[in-house]
């Protein structure tokens, strides 16, 4: 671990970093490479989008960076900590304390109300939430009058806002959002993207979002394009049209549909 610490300096503006990240499914002849020796740096305080056609490995990349999935080869650091090689228990704690999550299908706990869902990661850890910060998050997301509601009593957009608040509440080093607008109509989707943008600009958070929607990607600071398990391109200050144009080139390259990986 000492070499890892040396290679992954704690404070160089990088929230997460991967080197030679490889993920293979299966073994031998039938092995499929979901990630093929990927090097990536996620800049702190920025909104990074990961795009790519179905099966390009974008979700796998996110899962590996978040410590949800094991890697076949390569190294990943979160801040100054190398997470590849951590044991299950340490990974669980890392996810709990340093990472926030948003999923396509909200994934709120139906038995808990909005407020309880938001503070759940800190409750699990047995930590007191930072009340000032929590108030700020709740007000930013406009959830003040919804705190006592159960998920079943909330609309999809409101549920995703609760999920967003949960991801922000513990002020994690990094927030991973997996297709956060996938299950929302365009208006609610825009709202959520606006909140993620605000989280970065006003609250100083770091967000990594996986999406296949060029419009959503346009809200980010940087788009990374994945194809066949490699990062093939990057685009600073993207616009929806530019992203769409770039994506079209993938379609020409490999046909419009591949096997869905998730």
């Amino acid at each position: 671990m000492s070499t890892a610490a040396a290679e992954g300096p704690a404070d160089d503006g990088t929230a997460a970093r991967a080197r030679g990240l490889t993920k293979a499914y299966g073994a031998g002849e039938t092995a499929v490479l979901a990630l093929d020796s990927v090097d990536v740096d996620i800049a702190r305080g920025r909104f990074t989008a990961v795009m790519g056609p179905s099966g390009s490995g974008k979700s796998t990349l996110m899962h590996c960076l978040a410590g949800l999935d094991t890697v076949s080869a390569g190294q990943i650091w979160l801040g100054g900590t190398e997470i590849t090689g951590l044991r299950e228990r340490e990974l669980t704690r890392l996810r709990r304390d340093r990472i926030g999550f948003m999923f396509q299908s909200f994934n709120l706990i139906p038995t808990l109300n909005a407020a309880e869902n938001i503070t759940l990661p800190m409750d699990i850890a047995g930590r007191k939430p930072d009340e000032k910060w929590l108030d700020q998050v709740i007000d930013t997301l406009g959830l003040r009058d919804r705190l006592k509601h159960r998920p079943a009593q909330l609309s999809g957009g409101q549920q995703q806002r609760v999920a967003c608040a949960r991801a922000l509440a513990s002020r994690p080093e990094l927030i991973f959002a997996d297709e956060p607008t996938g299950n929302l109509d365009s208006r609610a989707g825009l709202e959520v993207l606006g909140f993620l943008r605000e989280a970065v600009d006003q609250l100083g958070q770091t967000v990594v979002m996986v999406t296949h929607d060029p419009g959503a990607a346009a809200h980010s600071d940087l788009v990374l394009f994945l194809a066949d398990g490699r990062i093939v391109d990057r685009m600073e200050d993207p616009t929806a049209d530019a992203v769409l144009e770039r994506m079209k080139r993938f379609d020409v390259g490999r046909g419009s549909s591949g096997p869905e990986e998730d």
Binding site: A66, L68, E88, R89, T92, R93, R95, R96, D97, F101, F103, N107, L108, I109, L120, P121, I124, A125, R166
Partner: peptide, 10 residues
């Protein structure tokens, strides 16, 4: 799955 993802220990 979600509880585990957001850090609930086994």
């Amino acid at each position: 799955g979600l509880l585990r993802a957001i850090g609930l220990a086994r």
